[in-house]
Design a protein around this nucleic acid. Sequence first.
DNA 1: TCAAAAGTGTTATTGATACACCCATGA
DNA 2: TCATGGGTGTATCAATAACACTTTTGA
Lengths: 230, 230
Amino acid sequence: MESTTQQCLSLAVSTVVFALRPHPSTGRTTPWLPLVRRIREPYEGLWALPGGPLEDDQDLADSAGATLLRTTGLAPRHLEQLYAFGNVDRSPGERVVSIVYWALVRRDEDARAIDGDNVEWFVADDVHGLAFDHDVIVRYALDRLRAKITYSPIAHAFVTDEFTLAQLREVYEAVLGRALDPANFRRQILAQGAVEPTGRHVTGTSHRPPALYRSNPAHSRHSLTIEETS
Amino acid sequence: MESTTQQCLSLAVSTVVFALRPHPSTGRTTPWLPLVRRIREPYEGLWALPGGPLEDDQDLADSAGATLLRTTGLAPRHLEQLYAFGNVDRSPGERVVSIVYWALVRRDEDARAIDGDNVEWFVADDVHGLAFDHDVIVRYALDRLRAKITYSPIAHAFVTDEFTLAQLREVYEAVLGRALDPANFRRQILAQGAVEPTGRHVTGTSHRPPALYRSNPAHSRHSLTIEETS
DNA sequence: TCAAAAGTGTTATTGATACACCCATGA
DNA sequence: TCATGGGTGTATCAATAACACTTTTGA
């Protein structure tokens, strides 16, 4: 029964946007995310996930995509619903239910990203002290990213159209936080059929020129994903 | 930014409730779910998932639990968020965003379940022609149930406190829809440490008395689950 | 010719699967 | 003693991990 009762709560859509950048101290590639400084109560002055109220004429994923555009200037490459947070006490004052998405930004697009006002990027694992329950949300999104990359080809969303297996491996290593054996990685990726060789090679390297691959669209979609027109 | 804008949409919580019962024709145990007949427009007369508007003072999971109580007379054994559905056009007329949960009912509790008015149970795989986008939701919940049972001890939510491995195996077979090798099933279940022997045995069988087990609470919780006070 | 990363080959280990076989009970 | 499902043993095959080794380039 989806009733017609008028309700005294607001519905917001927020997004955890991940991009891979070098860690400022170690230099190793690691997930980063953009946060927005709150300019009003509650939690004025604190950092929070980018988001906003759901518009009447906007699908949930569209709202998340618009947020991504506003904060990073980019269109979503991978956009997926994470979870709906709606505990009564999660926001002081008004009741707010937040539907949270997570998005992945490609390394080449990330390079030409432009931050909006009051937007700053942080190393995802170091984030804490956020407004609302956003610490928990970021933690959950990171866990999900790390779990999903092991059984789904989402890593492709971080690389350019054509890529070397070393670049793809760097994505896995950045997300999982550990080194992977290049030989076994190559075999596993090729065996699952999610990439196919373009026949072209990178030139100008000081070593054997690596082959270029592209992701195989026939294999890239999993049955358990809800299809949404982004 | 979780803004304070007033919105012209309603927020509902619906629940896909699964119980295992014999299939009316084949006799094999299979997932069933309760549906509610709609008594008003839109979709008047059609079957729909049990649910209702989110109350101001109610957490999301509490709302789903109340729905389960109303339709089956039972308290939730396993209750978990499935997905938030909110496309603009999913409900004619008013904009409705539905946060959908799924619940599992134990076989012993299911036996003493009492249906509410206009509530009827159906074989989950045969359900179609529901109101709104509920066909898609049921399909998605079934997919998730079948996927999750392979890597998480949710099967325990279908059996009594003490159970034989044959009973637990019947749950897996009912959900997955195929027979499992009893010998290998035993080893896999015991190896993952999610069950422990009680030391007691079933008596009165016309064959070797099977041992009774209980689920091991230390192992039963996975890191990727959001903790909710049901 | 040397360094460095691409790419191939080989072996050991682990886990899944299939299935033969013994055990304990009631009828 | 027979039928029935509980429970154990074991061989086979596939996936994973570890690592030695060859290839191709620029410097």
